[in-house]
Design a binder for these strands. Structure first.
Length: 571
RNA sequence: GCGCCAGUAGCUCAGUGGAUAGAGCGCUACCCUGCGGAGGUAGAGGUCAGAGGUUCGAAUCCUCUCUGGCGUACCA
């Protein structure tokens, strides 16, 4: 039987119950309780959980906080989970987990394995996460890595929190950018066949376009060559996009990110196989029916100023081509009405934020599901070399690719670097420092802890020891119990990430869990007592400690896995 | 101009209503010489951009000011 609530919820329920008991007993007036009843105190000396409820109730109850604390504590007897409460001025109730409860959790972690901290918070709701979705006109750059790390980890955390998650990459294969891209590619392709043609105005000058043209020539020969002076023949654009998307997929694969679906923007304009209208036609029909469209200056506008926006937005240009905004409305029609997701999260770079409110309004107008759409913006990465800012632009030519970053520091360090920071935080990424400090990246501190745990289990097995049957009641030392307590926080961290969409909490937790292990592992050295080692002459104690080590390895491995990083057995 | 996101230790950043504001890196001292030293403990280092307000309590919420990034297209 899996516990579906976090420890924090259970303790909170105890406090709520005690408060109601006090009210029933007449020692407290009848007052309303807030949602959050307990928190994790910063100072370990204040217990595992603490409630400031007495302070918050003081006014409405018209009683001194300490008297309220007494009244609640009276109905909070020590039980299987917690010891007797401690009251601390000016009005806190401090609660500590009972020793035998903490010990027992080791057995539970081993029994449940990697899923030990999962929850049912999401109730199986279907969530779709769309992230990266960079234009298929060039390789991914370093900044795209941030979106990949955030989106992918968020998806994992949501899955752990009981949501049914789908990861998706939206391929913008329909817009004007792809026309320019095709023209540039075709120019490079002609150059590969010895023609002296210039790059188009506003084209993509990057060297990768030459590589792409070479690839195309090698695969297809001169099949795409039209008469000189003619525009790119049919298929050039599709071929180029296919090649680029292949590259992007490879890069993200190396980065540890895979998708359930690569969604083509063009497909939004195609009728379905069984004759249903395209998503684009269907979405526009709804808007028209509800009077949200108006023709003006030869273009078709969404009259979003009637829906709370500060201006209207063009849906179909005066030349008849739909805008990117139209595609996005159709895309969200597809997400909500065709595929029926309960919740949709788009992870976007902050340079898209001008697009946020109009998409929310447009989505609401078409699907009525505006509330289920969450647009998560991450601030752009400022690249630096030393103190100098590096300007990135596919069209300007200079790109620091995600591939190059991965090559320099490895996928794990790159991911962790991005995950440590809140999405809303602007990041300076010093390329020189990133390479120089890759060996000091905290990710190795976490992975090293995992490798040491694996090593202890290996060595013990070699000496004929096994965790099986170990009695966890033998584990009473503070550094042993502290390690278990730290593991028990994981379920709360997962729910925190899943509800706030802030993956950095997981990264910081990983460091803290690793610290607890390193401190545990060092304890016997500092005290110079070989009996404090995991593997000792005492067979029963050894087995018990091996259970702790096994559980810690499960917990740490799970954290690394959620962040999309490897959990090495040795380094 | 208007809008969005930020400003916390030397550097890069956590902390979004609770108790003495933290981590990594860098710096100093010490421990341990290992079941893996990519380790442990401690210390120095802070006007939480500034001012006012709300609250029993504010880095956290509100207002204003300053600074930085981004947006404000019939580009995506």
């Amino acid at each position: 039987m899996t516990d579906t609530t976090t420890l924090r919820d259970r303790i909170g329920a105890l406090v709520a119950g005690a408060t109601r008991a006090a009210i029933n007993a007449g020692t407290l007036p009848d007052v309303a309780l807030p949602d959050e009843l307990v928190e994790r105190p910063r100072d370990a000396g204040h217990g595992d959980y603490a409630s400031s409820l007495p302070l918050r109730l003081a006014r409405s109850a018209m009683m001194p906080p300490l008297a309220i604390a007494e009244a609640i504590a009276e109905h909070l007897p020590s039980d299987d989970v917690i010891d007797a409460p401690q009251i601390a001025p000016p009005g806190f109730i401090n609660l500590s987990l009972a020793e035998h409860f903490v010990q027992g959790e080791i057995d539970r972690i081993i029994e449940q394995g990697a899923a030990f901290a999962d929850s049912t918070l999401g109730e199986g709701k279907r969530v779709q996460l769309e992230f990266v979705s960079a234009n298929p006109t060039g390789p991914l750059h370093v900044g795209n890595g941030r979106g990949a790390a955030i989106g992918d980890t968020l998806a994992s955390a949501l899955a752990a929190a009981g949501y049914q998650v789908e990861r998706e990459y939206y391929v913008n294969d329909a817009g004007t950018q792809t026309d320019v891209f095709a023209e540039t590619l075709y120019a490079r392709y002609q150059q590969q066949h010895g023609r002296d043609v210039p790059l188009p105005e506003g084209g993509y000058p990057g060297e990768y376009m030459v590589d792409l043209a070479i690839e195309m020539r090698e695969r297809e020969g001169d099949r795409f060559l039209a008469a000189p002076g003619e525009p790119p023949p049919a298929g050039v654009r599709e071929m180029g996009i296919e090649l680029i998307v292949e590259q992007i997929r490879d890069t993200l694969g190396t980065f540890g990110t895979t998708y359930d679906r690569w969604f083509s923007e063009r497909s939004l304009y195609e009728a379905t196989a069984d004759g249903e209208p395209s998503a684009y036609d269907a979405a526009l029909a709804i808007l028209r029916e509800n009077g949200h469209l108006a023709e003006r200056e030869g273009a078709l506008w969404l009259t979003s100023s009637n829906l709370g926006e500060d201006k209207d937005n063009v849906v179909v240009r005066s030349d008849g081509r739909p805008t990117y905004f139209a595609s996005d409305i159709a895309y969200h029609y597809d997400k909500f009405l065709t595929r029926g997701f309960d919740q949709v999260i788009n992870v976007w770079g902050a340079d898209h934020h001008g697009h946020v409110s109009r998409l929310e309004v447009g989505t609401e107008a078409v699907t009525g599901k505006g509330d289920a759409l969450h647009l998560l913006l991450y601030q752009l990465v400022t690249l630096k070399r030393g103190s100098e800012t590096v300007r990135l632009s596919k069209r300007g030519g200079e790109i620091i690719t995600l591939d190059e970053l991965i090559e320099e520091v490895g996928p794990d360090a790159a991911r962790f670097f991005f995950l440590l920071r809140a999405p809303s935080s602007q990041m300076d990424f010093d390329l020189d420092l990133a390479v120089k400090q890759s060996n000091e990246n905290p990710v190795f501190y976490i992975q090293y802890a995992h490798a040491r745990l694996a090593s202890i289990l290996d060595r013990a097995a070699g000496e004929g020891h096994t965790p099986d049957g170990g009695d966890v009641a033998l584990l009473t030392a503070p550094h042993e119990l502290a390690l278990v307590r730290e593991m028990l926080r994981l379920s709360e961290v997962i729910e925190l990430v899943a509800t706030t969409y802030e993956p950095q909490h997981l990264a910081h937790y990983g460091m803290e869990l690793a610290t607890s292990f390193h401190a545990f592992n060092d304890a016997f050295r500092q005290q110079g007592d070989p009996n404090l080692k995991v593997i000792t002459d005492d067979a029963a104690l050894t087995a018990a400690r091996l259970r702790l080590v096994q559980a810690a390895k499960i917990a740490l491995g799970r954290v690394l896995d959620l962040m999309g990083m490897t959990a090495p057995e040795r380094m």
